[in-house]
Design a protein around this nucleic acid. Sequence first.
DNA 1: CATTTGTGCAGGTAATTTTACTGTTTAAAA
DNA 2: TTTTAAACAGTAAAATTACCTGCACAAATG
Lengths: 153, 153
Amino acid sequence: MEKLDDIDLHILRILQKDSKKTTKEIAKILNLTASPVYERIRRLENKGYIKKYVALLNKTHLNKAVTAVCMVSLRYHNEGFIEKFESQIKALKEVQECYHMAGKVDFFLKINLESLTDYHEFVRLKLSKIENIGVLESYFVLKEIHSTTEFYI
Amino acid sequence: MEKLDDIDLHILRILQKDSKKTTKEIAKILNLTASPVYERIRRLENKGYIKKYVALLNKTHLNKAVTAVCMVSLRYHNEGFIEKFESQIKALKEVQECYHMAGKVDFFLKINLESLTDYHEFVRLKLSKIENIGVLESYFVLKEIHSTTEFYI
DNA sequence: CATTTGTGCAGGTAATTTTACTGTTTAAAA
DNA sequence: TTTTAAACAGTAAAATTACCTGCACAAATG
C-alpha cells in the first residue's frame, strides 16, 4: 500500500464531502488540469481507498426519525454462538450498524425506525426471538449533535 | 411533504447503494426512459429526500482502523452546560458522531483513530480537558459485523 | 556529467452523460 | 364529456468522462 501525497488526500477530503464535484472543479481547487485529477481518482478507486459512492438520505423525511442504540450481551460465547448471532442480526433490515465490542457488553446495534412503538415491536418480535441474548439495553437518540461519514485525514 | 410512490423509493434504494449509477441505467431497471428518472431525482434532491452525495472511504487504508465508542455523562445538566459541551465536541475532528441520548448516559461518541495509543492521547489531551464530564466509559470495536449508510425503505 | 527511465501533468478528442426543452400520453378532476 | 394536471418519451445542446499523445521534470544509472 504505497503512500498518498497531499494532492491525493486533498482529493479524498473533497470527495467524502461531495462526490458530485467534477474533476474540473477539483482541478481548479488544486491548480491542476482535469487529467491528473481524473487519473488520481481512478487510482484511489482501484487501490481501494474509495470504497463506494452513495447518496445520503434524509431519515426524517423517510419516516425513520427514531434512532436507537441497543447494547447486547450474549449468554454463551462459544465460537458457534457468536457466528449464529451475527448472521441473525445481519438478516434484520432495520439494523443499520452492528459492532462486536470489547467492553462491558458484546455488541452495539444502531437501529432506525419510525416510532417507539415500532421499536417495541422490533424488540418483541425480532430481537428477542434471537436465542442466546443475555442482556439487552436500549438507548434513544434525543438529538444528533454531529454525524458524518467523513474521516479526519 | 407529499408522499413518494414506488418508483421514487426504488430510485432512492438504488442511489443509496451506488450513486454513480446513471439515469439511463436506473431507467432500464425501472422500465422507463431517462427523462422521468432524471426529473424524479432532481425532485428528490430539491425536496430534501437526498441530503448529499459522498464517497465512502476505506478507513483501514487511511490509518483510522481503531474505532471507539465513548459514553459520556455530564455532572451538571443546565441548558448552558449542555450547549457548551456540544460545541466543544463539535470542535474535535476525531469525533465522527455524537448523539445526545436518553438512557443511562448522556452522550454517545464515535471516534476513529490510528491506534489505542492515539486514543489514549485523545482522551488525555482533548476529551478530559472538557469540563463538566462526570462519567466517561470507552468501548472498542473488535469487528464490524454490519455497517451501512442505507435506510431500509 | 550525460543518458536513460519513469512518473506526473497538460492538452486534445471521442464517447457518454447530464440538462433542458417539446410534444404526447395518461390519469384525475370538473 | 371536457378540462386540467402530471408523468412520460424523444431529442438536442452542453458538460463531463474516459482515454490518448506528447512534454517536462526528477530520479536512477552508466
